[in-house]
Computed example of a mutant assay.
Amino acid sequence: MKKILVFGATGMIGQRIVTELVNRGHDVTGLSRSGPVKGDVTQAAELAAGHDVVISAIAPPRDGTEPEAPFLAATRALIDGVREAGVRRLITVGGAGGLEVAPGLDLVDTPDFPQIYKKEALSQRAALGLYREVTDLDWTYVAPAAIIQPGERTGTFRLGGDRLLADEQGNSVISAEDYAVAVADEIEKAEHVRRRFTVAY
């Protein structure tokens, strides 16, 4: 059993990560800015102390403002706070936009990438750049498939590295429930330390 702190625990993905971890017997504290247990990443130094693992399931802001600067500021605050708290293991919910679809070409840079998600995807890719500069924490960036949505927990999926995973029809999909399984597996097995991995059917 690990003592785990989850930021963004009331979001679509965060909720499912908390459920999966609790069902596996871990001691989980879920935080959100508006939920019953409040706290955000700017308080990470104080809140993360005494935990084995910190998970960030926060997303770039979707309030119409430019999301990259505040999201990178939040990411820096999280990294610095976890470091100050003395916690080495940090898992972050990432985005699919920064995954490669061809050598040197990321999904977010393709012509058909939906404009409504572009700023968020670019913010997530920039955050990965911050993580890649961190050498004193055991971080992992978990990128979903191109489409992640509520669904079934099957426990059956594929893992990849920096390349977008798609099926024979070109579909790249994962349920939030199975994404949560992959996150929990990573916490227990630590197979992708200081790198990104992705999960899809």
Rank of each mutant, 00 (worst) to 15 (best):
V142C: 12
I147C: 10
L128T: 11
P111K: 03
D167R: 04
S123I: 05
A127S: 06
E168Q: 04
Y141A: 07
V142M: 07
T135N: 07
S123W: 01
L165A: 07
I116Y: 08
V108W: 13
D167A: 14
D109C: 15
E133S: 15
L130N: 02
F113A: 12
V134S: 04
A102C: 09
K119D: 02
G155T: 03
P114H: 00
A145R: 02
E120W: 15
Y131R: 02
R163V: 07
L164K: 02
L165C: 10
D162L: 12
R132P: 12
S123H: 01
D162F: 06
E120V: 15
L130P: 07
P114K: 01
G155K: 00
Q149W: 09
P144T: 05
G155C: 08
V108N: 06
P150V: 07
E133A: 14
P103M: 14
Q115L: 13
P111C: 11
L105H: 08
I116K: 09
D109Q: 13
R153M: 01
W139C: 15
Q115D: 06
L137K: 01
G160T: 14
L122W: 03
D138N: 01
K118F: 13
T110D: 04
W139S: 13
P144V: 02
K119N: 09
Q124F: 15
L130E: 00
L105T: 11
L130C: 08
T154Q: 05
P114W: 00
G151S: 08
L159H: 11
K118P: 01
G161L: 12
G129E: 01
D167S: 10
W139D: 05
D136Q: 05
L107F: 10
L137R: 01
S123P: 01
L130H: 09
V142W: 09
R163K: 12
L137H: 00
E120L: 14
R125W: 13
A166K: 03
D136V: 06
D106F: 14
K119W: 04
P144M: 00
P150S: 05
L128R: 05
E120P: 07
R153H: 01
G161S: 14
D162A: 08
I116H: 07
Q124K: 08
A127R: 00
V134I: 13
V142T: 06
P103Q: 11
L105Y: 05
V142G: 14
Y131I: 10
A102Q: 14
G129K: 03
G161K: 09
A146W: 06
W139T: 14
V108A: 15
K118M: 12
P111A: 14
D136T: 05
V134L: 09
P114A: 06
D106S: 14
Q149L: 10
R125V: 15
E168G: 10
A121R: 01
Q115P: 02
V134F: 06
A146V: 11
Q124T: 12
R125M: 14
Y117V: 13
G160K: 06
Q124Y: 11
P111Y: 01
I148Q: 12
Q149Y: 12
